[in-house]
Simulated assay, not measured.
Amino acid sequence: MDVLELNNITKSYGKITALKEVSLVVPEGTVFGILGPNGSGKTTMLSIILDVLSADSGSYKWFGQPGSKIQRRKIGSLLETPNFYHYLSAVNNLKVTQSISGRGNPAEIEKALRTVNLYERRSSRFSTFSLGMKQRLAIAAALLGEPRVLVLDEPTNGLDPVGIAEIRDLIRKLNQKGHTIIMASHLLDEVEKICTHVAILKTGNIITSGVVDDVLSDEDILEISAADNLPLFELLHQFPGVVNCKQEEKYLLLYCEKGKADPVAINKYCFENGIILQHLAIRRKRLETRFFELTSN
């Protein structure tokens, strides 16, 4: 089942078009990353699907129903900077959030604090929290009402490496518990480590979207080596489906048409031609490389 479907969403601010006929589908059970540089339209998109902003045109559906009709308790959200009372404790801040939003009940506060690993600091004032702890408290607030989907805008923004690792692990944990996560980020490394699916935004346009592994690769790349790479280099140029072959340090990089790389067949082909391979592995293209390939045009 798809939890979210956007159809031709367009949004402008005066002469600036923030989103241009954006369409995408978010499958249930995924960690779906909305990736793009600052100003690409990520926050605008999240604000529209959370009914904070209205689109100029287009539509969206939550769980197959028009966005305006969906029960908001099914969706927890964190947009931009967490907003809590600095002089109140974690538990009292969540009581205020629960009372104002009407989402969940007081009994869920303890569960939410345990989920984000803040229960032992439940009586501490918000002002004593690190940035990572503040972000985790904001996610705890989003968990009130036990939503099926969490929408997180730049959840690791501004955090140190420890804080980033904490949020990364928490997102994985929440996904394993059955939550679908939709997160916007400009940090390519975090999206690559956390997300199962990704959509890349550039100046309000969806450049590509899909499973992370599919987006990363527009071709298959194999690392390969033998005792002498020169005859291997000459031999592999003749193998069907090979687009290019080049030397990189001690390995040859074999570029094949997408879906055409067959390590078993290549190993057999080399052996039958008198070359015994010492190394053969599939290389996954880094998201950073693929991102710049897609957005540089």
Rank of each mutant, 00 (worst) to 15 (best):
S123Y: 13
L143V: 02
E28F: 01
I167T: 03
K61M: 07
Q238G: 00
I200N: 05
Y60P: 01
D153R: 12
S130F: 03
F84C: 02
A112D: 01
A226K: 05
I9E: 01
G259Y: 10
V191K: 06
P263Y: 02
T10E: 04
Y119F: 11
R114F: 05
L94A: 05
I276E: 15
I164L: 10
P161T: 08
T17Y: 00
N157Y: 08
I16M: 15
F63D: 10
L287F: 11
A142Q: 03
K193H: 13
Y269G: 06
L253P: 09
A261L: 08
I276S: 15
H237Y: 10
A90G: 13
G210L: 07
K173E: 15
E154H: 11
K42E: 02
L232K: 03
T128Q: 12
I194V: 14
K202N: 15
A18L: 11
N244R: 13
I109L: 09
G41Y: 06
L131I: 02
G132W: 04
S130D: 08
W62Q: 08
N244L: 08
L131D: 03
L53S: 08
V212Q: 06
S47Q: 10
F291Q: 06
G132N: 09
D218F: 12
N92I: 06
K285N: 13
Y85V: 11
V243M: 14
P106M: 03
I100H: 07
D228P: 01
F233V: 05
E234Y: 12
S89A: 03
R286C: 06
T196E: 01
N229R: 06
I224C: 15
A199D: 01
V31H: 03
I194P: 04
G64Q: 12
L88V: 04
G58V: 05
R290P: 03
A226H: 11
Q238C: 08
A18M: 10
E234F: 13
E272T: 11
E192A: 12
T295K: 04
S99H: 14
R122N: 06
Q135F: 00
T44Q: 05
L88T: 04
